[in-house]
Design a protein around this nucleic acid. Structure first.
Length: 548
RNA sequence: GGUCUCGUGGUCAAAUGGUUAAGACACCGCCCUUUCACGGCGGAAUUAGGGGUUCGAACCCCCUCGAGAUCACCA
């Protein structure tokens, strides 16, 4: 018996040759500068911000190079699959307008000539290559009992550490004779296929990473699994085959893949493929809840993209914040080009930093506040509406009841040269403008005034209040009530002789503001009163008066 | 434990051996101002530590320390 016969014995039902497969995946006809990149998530049920980050980098890289961005589902492990995960991921890409050009789409159709784009549908392809490797003596069957699950692996590793300080894979099946293999097969023993690694312990391999630059690592020495004993491949085998056949030119993926790169390179070489370029992106970290400064890995801190949707961050805020993490020059560019779309920014994958950045929600809020503050009323209102529809029943009902009222609130401090920055996310809207929706029942009065003084101010205000007044007249009337109450209507005079007055014009305005909103700080008082209307203003003032 | 990666203010970071180590967020102060925001001006704050090479080091070399990743028939 020889290896060719062995391959036939192991895979009698695999008739497809690798040559036939290659014919179905012709090289792409693209200009040499075009990058073909892919986003290849596994269906775990949610989309992590770090994965989203790499997908965004994929989208930018393909667009900038006039290349192709495709989506491939890595669903070879059916045990772990969460149904519908691909839709969660794809809908998120759609929501942020960074959909791929090719592959699986949100309507679950597949676009492109390099499919199928779900690995579970490509088993025959992987098996054909596995068969070829066995025939060439580069892989062999393994009948060992399998280790299954992370707990078992950790336990086994701990045992090995106490014994000899190093972890060695035992490849006892590597030297099985053809006879032994034949007997095992006759006994119907399940088998996996392992790579017959050519690596020696002290050999190194040089390669270039688009983000990390020139590197030298130890070669792979492990006889890794290529086909599991259930007949499906692990990622390690599927990735080189798919990215070769699909014409990927640049593999962009998280840095947690970095250590397995030598292994992937050896498999790629064994298969006879030219390796793609690689770019390993730093992992995004979140800061600990109890203010510790530990960087948390993605496995420790959940950071589901749906969080940002539920909070109501504008999609460009998320994208621009992430873009700034990727290329910090974006900030300056944005300052110099306030009107341009982020897509115009000269993104460069080589300028991505090497260390893992902490995702800073405070900074995100700042980016987001600026973006929201620049929206015109119509856009802001539409954004609020779309968000409330799915995420906030109270606000959605308010909009349905009286959309003009809500629109007027949205308009506060907007469409002016120095717009207010009150809102970082649409969820803030209700809290920032709570006083517009609920008349205050508690009042944060300025404690330096006794209640009878406050009452006098409110009475004087009510006597002259007219909703039809212009801002100038309204404020002029407030000035007029100053002197009789012992207040100063001129701030400069007050500052020079503060001991001669009970208070000043600012205090008068503050008392009325507190009566109307319950708080000492708010957006422009006149605007608020105009929106609330005559009756509401009078009712609120009377209620405040009676509560004293 | 092995291997690998990364360490510049609280955070994101610029500065490829050559001015006083940019800028942004956050913080503090002042100005503007009927409050709060916005805006403007200013301030405090960083090359993890120790050696070496050099006229000169954040940058090159070595050691130490810290953090992270990885070491599955998961991806």
């Amino acid at each position: 018996m020889d290896n060719k016969q062995l391959a036939e014995m192991l895979f009698p039902n695999v008739k497809l040759s690798t040559q036939e497969i290659e014919q179905n995946f012709p090289p792409r006809n693209l200009p040499p500068t075009a990058q073909v990149v892919r986003f290849a998530p596994s269906p775990t049920g949610f989309l992590h911000i770090g994965n989203f980050f790499t997908a965004f980098i994929d989208r930018l890289t393909a667009s900038k190079s006039n290349g192709v961005f495709f989506f491939r589902l890595e669903d070879t492990d059916k045990k772990r699959e969460v149904a519908g995960s691909e839709l969660v991921a794809l809908n998120m890409l759609k929501a942020y307008d960074i959909l791929p050009d090719e592959g699986l789409m949100p309507n679950l159709t597949q676009i492109g000539n390099y499919g199928p784009y779900a690995q579970s549908q490509r088993t025959q392809i992987y098996l054909a290559y596995a068969k070829k490797l066995v025939a060439n003596g580069k892989a062999y069957p393994c009948f060992c009992e399998k280790t299954d699950g992370k707990k078992e692996v950790i336990k086994k590793r701990e045992q090995q550490l106490t014994q000899d300080g190093d972890i060695e894979e035992q490849d006892i099946c590597r030297n099985l004779s053809y006879n032994q293999i034949e007997q095992n097969l006759k006994a119907n023993l399940p088998f996996a296929i392992r790579l017959k690694s050519c690596g020696l312990p002290d050999q190194t391999i040089k390669f270039y990473d688009e983000i990390r630059g020139e590197r030298e690592l130890h070669v792979n020495c492990k006889d890794v699994i290529l086909v599991k004993n259930n007949g499906t491949p692990p990622y390690t085998f599927a990735h080189p085959i798919d990215d070769h056949l699909m014409g990927t030119t640049l593999v962009i993926r998280g840095e947690d893949w970095f250590p397995s790169l030598p292994c992937h390179l050896e498999i790629t070489k064994a298969l006879g493929f030219a390796p793609p370029k690689y770019a390993h992106t730093p992992n995004l970290c979140m800061i600990g809840a109890n203010d510790n400064k530990l960087k948390l890995s993605k496995r420790m801190g959940a950071s589901d993209m749906r969080f940002f949707i539920k909070q109501g961050y504008p999609k460009t805020a998320i994208l621009e914040y992430l873009l700034n993490l990727a290329n910090s020059g974006f900030e300056l560019w944005r300052k110099n080009n306030p009107q341009l779309c982020y897509k115009e920014f000269p993104f460069s994958i080589n300028k991505i930093g090497k260390s893992s950045p902490i995702f800073d929600l405070v900074k995100l809020d700042d980016v987001s506040k600026t973006i929201i503050s620049k929206m015109n009323t119509e856009t802001a209102y539409n954004n609020l509406f779309e968000w409330a529809k799915d995420n906030d029943e109270f606000m959605f009902n308010k909009i349905k009841e009286n959309s003009d009222f809500v629109k007027k609130i949205v308009n506060i401090g907007r469409e002016i040269s120095k717009p207010r920055k009150d809102i970082a996310k649409w969820k803030d809207f209700e809290t920032v403008f709570a006083f517009m929706f609920h008349a205050p029942t508690v009042f944060e009065w300025d404690t330096k005034f006794k209640s009878d003084i406050i009452k006098n101010v409110l009475l004087a205000f009510l006597k002259t209040f007219c909703i039809l007044d212009s801002n100038e007249i309204f404020f002029g009337k407030l000035k007029d009530i100053c002197a009789p109450l012992g207040f100063s209507s001129d701030m400069k005079i007050f500052k020079a002789n503060s001991e001669k007055f009970l208070g000043n014009i600012a205090d008068i305005a503050c008392i009325i503001r507190t009566a109307i909103t319950g708080k000492q700080d708010s957006p422009d008082l006149y605007t608020i009163m105009q929106i609330l209307g005559k009756i509401e203003c009078e009712n609120r003032t009377n209620f405040a008066y009676n509560s004293l």
